[in-house]
Simulated assay, not measured.
Amino acid sequence: MRLFSTERTDVYLLTEDFAEEFQQYLVANKDYLAPFEPLRDKQYFILNNISERIKKSVSEFHEGKNLLIVFTIKEEREIIGSINFTNFVYGVFQACYLGFSIDHAHQGKGLMHEVLNMAIEYVHEKYELHRVMANHLPDNLRSRKTLESLGFIKEGYAKSYLKINGVWQDHVLNSLILPEK
């Protein structure tokens, strides 16, 4: 299901229709993304397991808990990036977490900024969230610059925050406050 398009991309809800393309994306970027993600065993990359994770995420999407999206170059089918809005909290908090990745061959072209800009607007409109939180490793300058360009503000520094690539690592904590609707 296409959610929206940007100038250069088409953006879709990640559904089982994209399981094979998503598997290709994950496998093609396995080594590139490894320093930024939890350890992934071989089972993580098996199509049936990917389909099961997607099925669970779609169920959680319908429950209003998350939004997992993928994007392609306009009019193409190959996935070149992934954006995850997770852990939606409503009520007095109205917030979620943001995670994102892009294919190594498409990095540095402004595509992630282009898609994130519209994706954040989409989440704000659809879910009326007030705060989007995104954290990154201290030495991940690309993520830092992308978040800064979108208006995210550094709010803190968390020691030993997440176990990334098998090691507990510090993270820079950032947030974007969205205007009230």
Score class of each variant (00 low, 15 high):
3 L>I: 09
162 L>E: 13
71 F>R: 07
2 R>L: 12
93 F>G: 05
58 V>R: 01
122 Y>Q: 10
175 S>V: 00
48 N>T: 14
29 N>M: 09
19 A>H: 08
101 S>G: 04
11 V>Y: 09
129 L>S: 06
21 E>T: 02
73 I>V: 11
97 Y>F: 15
96 C>D: 06
134 A>T: 05
181 K>N: 11
58 V>L: 03
117 N>C: 12
170 D>H: 13
175 S>L: 00
3 L>Y: 10
162 L>I: 09
85 F>D: 05
117 N>H: 14
35 P>W: 07
4 F>M: 08
118 M>C: 05
64 G>A: 04
102 I>T: 07
8 R>A: 01
65 K>F: 08
176 L>G: 08
126 K>Q: 15
101 S>I: 01
92 V>Q: 10
169 Q>F: 07
111 L>R: 06
169 Q>G: 06
89 V>E: 12
93 F>K: 13
157 Y>T: 01
89 V>P: 00
24 Q>C: 10
82 S>C: 08
116 L>E: 03
120 I>H: 04
26 L>N: 07
159 K>D: 04
103 D>W: 03
170 D>T: 12
79 I>D: 00
84 N>H: 08
178 L>H: 01
120 I>K: 03
170 D>M: 09
42 K>G: 13
152 F>L: 07
28 A>K: 13
154 K>V: 14
96 C>K: 02
20 E>H: 08
78 E>K: 15
149 S>V: 02
36 F>D: 04
158 A>V: 05
135 N>R: 07
56 K>Q: 11
143 S>G: 13
165 N>M: 05
150 L>H: 09
55 K>E: 11
159 K>I: 12
39 L>H: 00
95 A>I: 07
62 H>A: 06
49 N>S: 11
166 G>F: 03
38 P>M: 09
154 K>A: 12
167 V>P: 00
72 T>Q: 02
147 L>H: 10
177 I>C: 09
170 D>G: 12
99 G>D: 07
105 A>N: 14
136 H>P: 01
50 I>L: 02
51 S>H: 03
30 K>P: 01
160 S>Q: 14
61 F>W: 14
42 K>E: 15
81 G>E: 04
133 M>A: 11
104 H>R: 14
103 D>R: 02
68 L>P: 11
7 E>D: 14
29 N>L: 07
61 F>C: 01
141 L>C: 00
86 T>E: 12
18 F>R: 03
132 V>N: 03
132 V>Y: 04
61 F>Y: 15
58 V>N: 01
65 K>H: 14
46 I>C: 01
127 Y>E: 11
24 Q>G: 04
103 D>M: 02
17 D>A: 13
78 E>Y: 10
115 V>P: 07
84 N>L: 08
115 V>R: 09
49 N>K: 09
63 E>K: 15
92 V>G: 13
155 E>F: 09
166 G>R: 04
127 Y>I: 00
157 Y>D: 03
138 P>I: 11
65 K>I: 01
175 S>K: 00
112 M>D: 02
110 G>N: 06
